[in-house]
């Protein structure tokens, strides 16, 4: 039982990091994108390919992953400078689809639909994470550090600027603030964090494929932020925990195997709908 629970908690910590990073865009800055799984994927593929193709260690690989995902995230920020709201939703969705196509079609590099096998486990300073408990401790620690760093960030003047952009872009603009630079910056930061989650993900599961980073993954991360509570950091963490753990609990009900998978998905859908009605601001309310 212990390993099973530890495994779930590792997943929770990974998605908590992802959801926090998306909330920087969604909750704090008011930028609604459906491309977060793409940035997550850049990190995962960046780190895995660096380790496999160049034989580099885990830390340099993470560095490459961060750089690549920051770069791509900055590129995704470009539409957000030009279009907003409904347009950004669709533009980011298009980016998500293009990314997925690239993963599948550039099979010489990415392994195509078959994905990448045997990704090395994280090894830092001669210590390699192998047991589930190692992963839980290390990944939770990283999640906590990110949480602390981001809570400092959102309380800083920069964080306040982001919230001002969310409320009304025109106001900070007339006050002489560089809204464009702020948007690009927050995309880069969110990209780095999501890319890190990607690197950690690949080295835990030791296997990645394009399906891991498709639009459904983007929607899952999005629903974590929304259910948890936008514009907070505890919210995404709570949302990640809820949406990973609740569907797992369903495994313990004696449903016939043929409808089990469907029932779990229906349950996931009902949670989302239920939250929209009963708690539209999420589990954790922004102050």
């Amino acid at each position: 039982m212990a390993t099973y629970i530890i495994g779930i908690l590792v997943t929770v910590s990974l998605f908590a990091i992802l959801a926090m990073s998306l909330d920087l865009l969604l909750g704090y800055t008011g930028l609604f994108t459906i491309s977060h799984a793409a940035i997550f994927g850049i990190g995962a593929y960046g780190a895995a390919l660096t380790m496999q193709a160049f034989g580099w260690g885990f830390l340099p690989a993470v560095g490459v992953a961060l750089g690549a995902s920051a770069l791509v995230s900055a590129a995704i920020s470009l539409p957000s400078l030009r279009v907003s709201g409904d347009y950004l939703v669709l533009a980011s969705f298009a980016i998500q689809e293009v990314f997925y196509s690239l993963l599948v079609n550039l099979d010489g590099i990415t392994g195509g639909s078959a994905g990448l096998h045997r990704i090395p486990q994280p090894s830092i300073l001669g210590f390699t994470l192998t047991r589930p408990l190692d992963f839980l401790i290390a990944y939770t620690l990283i999640a906590v550090l990110i949480f602390i760093a981001l809570s400092v960030l959102v309380r800083s003047p920069f964080g306040l600027l982001l919230k001002a952009i969310r409320e009304d872009e025109i106001v900070p603009q007339t006050l002489g603030k560089d809204v464009v630079a702020a948007k690009v910056k927050i995309f880069v930061i969110a990209g780095c964090v999501a890319g890190l989650a990607g690197a950690l993900y690949g080295s835990y599961y030791t296997f990645i494929d394009p399906l891991t980073f498709d639009v459904h993954a983007s929607v899952l991360i999005l629903s974590m932020v929304l259910i948890g509570g936008m514009g907070t950091l505890w919210g995404p963490v709570a949302g990640a925990a809820l949406l990973i753990i609740l569907p797992e609990l369903l495994r313990f009900f004696p449903f016939p195997s043929e409808v089990l998978g469907n029932l779990r998905q229906i349950f996931y859908g009902l949670i989302i709908i239920g939250f929209c009605f009963l708690r539209p601001t999420g589990l954790v309310r922004a102050r």
């Binding site: 929304l226 409808v259 469907n262 859908g269 989302i272 709908i273 929209c276 539209p280």
Partner: peptide, 23 residues
Amino acid sequence: ASMLVIVMASLGVTIVGENLLSI
């Protein structure tokens, strides 16, 4: 509810609908 919440609800309905159809 904000537009975002309604979008999420719509995605929720999609997931429920697809899986009911599958059953």
